[in-house]
Amino acid sequence: MEILKELNRIIDQYQDSILVVRQQTEQKLPAHQHDKGQLLLVFGGIAYLQTYEKDFYIPSSHYIWIPARYPHNLMYNTQDLNIINIYFPPGDQQDFYDNLGIYPVSKLLSEMLSYSEKWQGNFFSGDWEYEFLTTLKNLLPRENLKRFSIQLPTTDDSRLGDITGDIRKRISEPITLEGIASQSGMSVRSMTRLFKTRLGISFVQYLKMLRIIRAMELIKDTDLSMSEIAYEIGYSNISAFSNTFQQLTNMRPTEFRTMSSK
Rank of each mutant, 00 (worst) to 15 (best):
D156M: 12
S236P: 00
L136R: 04
F124E: 10
A230K: 00
R214K: 15
D221Q: 15
K196A: 14
L140A: 08
R211C: 07
E232S: 14
F123Q: 03
S242Q: 04
Q151D: 05
I219H: 02
F132L: 14
I219N: 03
N122C: 12
P153K: 01
R142D: 07
T164K: 06
R198Y: 02
L140Y: 07
L133W: 05
K169S: 12
N144H: 13
I212P: 00
I213L: 12
S227H: 10
Q151S: 14
Y235N: 00
S239G: 05
Q205P: 00
K220M: 10
M191T: 08
N237T: 01
R214S: 09
S172T: 09
K137G: 02
W119R: 13
S184M: 12
D156Y: 11
M216P: 00
L194R: 06
T164S: 05
T154H: 04
I180S: 05
D156P: 00
L139N: 09
L177V: 09
A240G: 02
R214N: 08
S184P: 06
R214T: 09
F132Q: 05
R170Y: 09
D156T: 13
T197K: 15
D221N: 12
L152D: 04
N138G: 09
R189C: 06
E173C: 10
M191F: 04
D166L: 15
F203E: 03
T176F: 02
I201A: 02
R198K: 15
